[in-house]
Structures are given as structure tokens and as C-alpha cells.
Design a protein around this nucleic acid. Structure first.
Lengths: 212, 212
DNA sequence: GTCTATAGGATGATAGAC
DNA sequence: GTCTATCATCCTATAGAC
């Protein structure tokens, strides 16, 4: 089962406000990653976090604010991993180190996908500006801190969007069935394909309470 | 205003079934492109098409079937353009011709974005399989018909996903304000940036009747 | 072929008890 | 800090007139 459900003990147990907040954000990241902003209900997030639906709203104000916090937290984590990869002492070329850090984020369920869902809602008056800001933040890191040129940075981001898309597509679901899928996945994940494959979940039969 | 609203004349005018169907599909492609599957309501599609909400449902059965038809139609158009680019007599290298065909599709409002919204819903039991099928259909075209190798094909698709993402982000909204945005867009769109910029719409102030 | 009216079911958010 | 109860809204889909 999900590692997310009420892992802190018996129902009714209280947590420090910060812990509970982080706990809900983690659960929300997974759900938003699966269904996107509009497809996610606060009730499903609540169930995933093991709290009541009104409590989720109480803590974050609105569903929109919750999503924006999920995006922000995802970006923070991503930038932290990138900076760690940059600081690392290693013979491995920098581009590969950052690339591996990116693929490693795929094991943080929902993180890359929540970002991706944000990226395709650029037209939304609240979400759009935040999504653009986050995306350009990564670009600036590549250009300024990592020292890539414009083309290198663009190619790196393109590879990232490709990875996000294939995760979103749940391409690994067809890995055993389709030789073309295997070939494409191997081309897109020079290393660390195992991380992706280990992530495969049993496909869900119905939308457990999410929107239609 | 949108070129989509009731362009066929006075209210109540009838059209041949096929025309009306295509008309609604076009409108639906735009709306789905903006808000995604869950974020789109049949009422908004209906308004964009200039018909009543129940009529949209009547013609397509369910919102889900409508979305699947939008995806299918988008893929058909895309493959048609790719095959046309392949058949073209020209000194321009094949990869560039297909790339240009792809960027050209961006002027078909909502087409690439509806596909993208489908791609990130791979977990959905109905949409997921169709999205994967469509994506792999493009890959197979590149490998088999266009004659690209696995790496070339993967890079081409990565560039495509990058373009889709930047369209989804409405990156062009910040073109005048942000030098980094300009640099990135120029790197990602070696040619045809003008097509993208011409597409820019006034950002919407509120979500006109779409979900929250 | 197309519309109006509306049923039936969620959903986000609030009030207020404990 | 967290829950239960509940409201108002909104959405898909159906019924049935024209």
C-alpha cells in the first residue's frame, strides 16, 4: 500500500503543525501528479493524507493555494538536488551529474508530474505566472550556476520534458509488451532506467473518487 | 474575438451532421488545450462552439469520448503533416522539414496542447492507453517511415515535448519582459519563432466558466 | 438536429463542536 | 488541531419538446 496513509499512528493523533503540513503536501504531490490540478479533489488528497477534507482546506486556505505550495516545494527540492550535484566532487561530467539528479527525482512520486501539470496550465491567471517563474528558475540555474550555454541548457530542459512526459504517459506500463517502448525508454534514460521501472505501479481500474 | 463562435451564421441554423461534429471538435480542441481534460466543462466547449451544452453530450456521448476524439483528430492531423513533409521535394534536410511541420502545428490552436494534456494523464484507465498509443505512433513514424535511428527519434520527440511545454506555459507572455525567456525561446525555435509569437493571446483575467 | 428544463451527484468551502 | 455536518454551487447526463 501507499506509504502515505496515516503513517504516524492511530487516528486522532496530533502532530506538530509543520509536520502535518508537510505530510499533507507530500500526499497532495502524489495526487496532483496523477490527476493534475483540476482532476484532483481535496477529498482525495485528504484521504491520501489520512485527514479530513475540511482540514486540508483549513490548513491551506484553498485548493489553489495548496497546489501552488506543492509546486513551490517541488521546485525547492529540485533546486536543492541540482545544487548538490553541482557541488559534488566527481570525475563524472557535470551535465551527467545534474541529469542523474533529475532522473533520481522521479522516485519522489508525483514531484516531476505535479510540476508538469503546472507547466501545461500556463493560461491560468494564478498558476501560470508561478509555473513560468519556476521553469525559468531552472533555466537560470543551468545558464548561470552550472555554466551551460543557451543551446546546452535548452537541450537539457528538452530531455527533462521528455522524461516528464514519459513518466506521465506511464510508458513503463507497456515495457514488457512493446519492443518500441523498450527501445525508446533506453534511448531516453541512458542510465537509471531501473529507477523508472521500479516505480511502476499496478494500473488503477477506476478513478478512486477523483473527478470525471 | 475567437474565430470559433457560431461562425456559420444565425442561431438555429442547421449544419450537416459531419460539419457540426467537426465544428465542435475544433472548439473542444481549443478548450481542452487551455484547461486539460478535467479542467474543461462541456458547457464551455458548447459556448465556444455556439451550441447548447446538452447537444455536445448528445453528439459525442460523454465528455470522455469527446476528449478521446479530440486526441485522435489531433494525431491524425499531425501524422498527415508529417507525411506531407516527408513526401516534399526539397533541399532542406528531412529532420528540419519534419521539425518545421511540427512547429507549424502550433498555429492550430489547442492541438499540441490537447495532446500534451492527454500525455500527462497516462494513469487514467481510458485516456492513458490511447495517449500511449498516439505517442508511440509518432515514434514509429520517425523510426520506420522517416528512417531516424533511436537516438535521433528520441531527441526529436524531446524537442517536441519542450515546445509543447513552452506553449503550455505561455512563455511568450513574458517575451518582452524577460531576456532569459527570449534567449530560451530562440534556442528552442531555431526558425518559426514568429509563428509562436503571433499566437500570443491577451491573458485571461478569470477562468471563464471553467472548473475550479 | 437542436434546444430548454432539470435530475442526480460531486465538490470546495464554512460553521461550529470537541 | 482536528473532526462532523452541511451549504451552495457547479457539472454531466437525461428527458422530452419543437
Amino acid at each position: 500500500m501507499s506509504s502515505m496513509t496515516n503513517e504516524s499512528g492511530a487516528k486522532g493523533t496530533r502532530m506538530r503543525a509543520e509536520d502535518r503540513r508537510e505530510h499533507i503536501l507530500k500526499a497532495a504531490t502524489e495526487v496532483f501528479g496523477d490527476y493534475g490540478y483540476f482532476g484532483t479533489t481535496t477529498a482525495v488528497v485528504a484521504r491520501a493524507a489520512g485527514v479530513s477534507q475540511p482540514y486540508v482546506v483549513r490548513v491551506f486556505g484553498t485548493k489553489e493555494k495548496l497546489f501552488l505550495e506543492v509546486l513551490q516545494r517541488a521546485l525547492d527540492l529540485l533546486m536543492r538536488e541540482f545544487r548538490a550535484a553541482l557541488a559534488e566532487e566527481s570525475d563524472v561530467p557535470l551535465a551527467d551529474r545534474i541529469g542523474l539528479a533529475y532522473v533520481g527525482l522521479a522516485s519522489n512520486r508525483g514531484l516531476l508530474l505535479s510540476l508538469m501539470h503546472g507547466f501545461v496550465l500556463g493560461r491560468d491567471p494564478e498558476i501560470g505566472p508561478e509555473a513560468r517563474r519556476g521553469f525559468m528558475c531552472v533555466y537560470r540555474f543551468l545558464r548561470t550556476e552550472a555554466g551551460f550555454d543557451a543551446d546546452e541548457s535548452e537541450r537539457f530542459l528538452a530531455g527533462g520534458m521528455m522524461i516528464n512526459t514519459m513518466i506521465g504517459l506511464r510508458m513503463t506500463d507497456d515495457f514488457d509488451r512493446d519492443a518500441d517502448v523498450r527501445e525508446l525508454l533506453r534511448a531516453a534514460f541512458p542510465q537509471k532506467l531501473d529507477v523508472l521501472l521500479a516505480l511502476a505501479e499496478p494500473p488503477i481500474a477506476e478513478r478512486n473518487g477523483a473527478r470525471s
